[in-house]
């Protein structure tokens, strides 16, 4: 009885937000391995959605399905549906390059191109549209300010990006993604190779960015999810165990597996 009333309360909370992305019965196989097993989740607009779960639970495969970067993986089969702004993105006539300008992605390991800091910020956007010199400079300054990198690098924009620290490189990668002006930003464990200070900087940035963007954040760090998540998705062994508002899930998880995982980072599935 208690559970049911809680569920209905949660659904009321859920209805106040718009879901920008909906996954319906998503199955993914890589060769014979069933990586995702019928996932139904929704990603609320202008919120931070954290995907948590033990390693090998399919978090990365899930997030990588949303911008179809998984398409090039050898032996992948996808079934089910992903809706973005109301239309399916898994059809064969989806313009994948244009989809990826709307759904940007930041990876676990920062990957800067062997170019200058400035060129790295502009790397994606300059292939999409012509920018004047002034527009370029404005964009670089604006995006580097957003990721709080401007003060550190404004005097050496033409230096090689590889000369930055790993934490700075990751922020540069985020700036590069923002420059393309996506609606959604997918982040696949973006802080797992960073020091605690850079990690905090990125977490604070996410909280600010959610006003403009929808953020999907994969993390194996439960404390991190607790700090930043609005919406929480818990995966284990390729199955969705539970999803809902982060506050509700952290305070009273519905599922015993979720409870065990949030408490001991252990999942018996």
């Amino acid at each position: 009885m208690e559970q049911q009333s809680l569920k209905s309360k949660l659904s009321v909370v859920g209805k106040t937000t718009v879901d920008i992305i909906k996954l319906e019965g998503l199955h993914v196989w890589i060769k014979e391995n069933h990586i995702l097993d019928g996932i139904d989740v929704n990603i609320p607009k202008n919120k931070i959605t954290c995907i948590i779960g033990p390693s090998g639970s399919g978090k990365s495969t899930l997030i990588r399905s949303i911008n179809r970067i998984n398409d090039d993986v050898d032996g992948i089969t996808t079934q089910g549906n992903i809706n973005f702004n109301g239309s399916s993105i898994l059809t064969s006539d989806t313009d994948i390059a244009s989809l990826r300008t709307q759904i940007g992605m930041v990876f676990q390991k920062p990957c800067v191109f062997p170019k200058s800091i400035k060129e790295n910020v502009l790397f994606g956007i300059q292939h999409l549209k012509k920018l004047s010199k002034i527009e370029k400079l404005q964009l670089v300054e604006q995006k580097l300010k957003t990721v709080s990198l401007w003060k550190e690098v404004s005097h050496r924009l033409n230096d090689k990006a590889i000369s930055l620290s790993i934490g700075q490189q990751q922020r540069l990668c985020i700036a590069r993604t923002l420059a393309v002006k996506p609606e959604v930003i997918l982040l696949d464990e973006p802080t797992s190779s960073l020091d605690p200070l850079s990690t905090r900087a990125i977490e604070d940035m996410m909280v600010k960015l959610k006003e403009e963007y929808t953020i999907v954040f994969v993390t194996h760090n439960i404390q991190q999810a607790k700090r930043i998540a609005d919406h929480l998705i818990f995966l284990c062994d390729g199955k969705l165990i539970e999803q809902g508002s982060a506050r509700a899930m952290f305070s009273c998880p519905q599922n015993s597996q979720t409870k065990a995982y949030l408490k001991d980072e252990y999942c018996a599935c």
Binding site: I69, A97, R100, F107, C111, F113, H127, T177, V180
Partner: peptide
């Protein structure tokens, strides 16, 4: 060239041909 360079450029909305030409 590590896969991450291909994926990073694809994720920015570059087409495969642009990735080949530019990266």
């Amino acid at each position: 060239i590590p896969t991450i360079y291909r994926e990073s450029s694809l994720a920015l909305g570059l087409t495969k041909w642009q990735v080949i030409r530019k990266v």
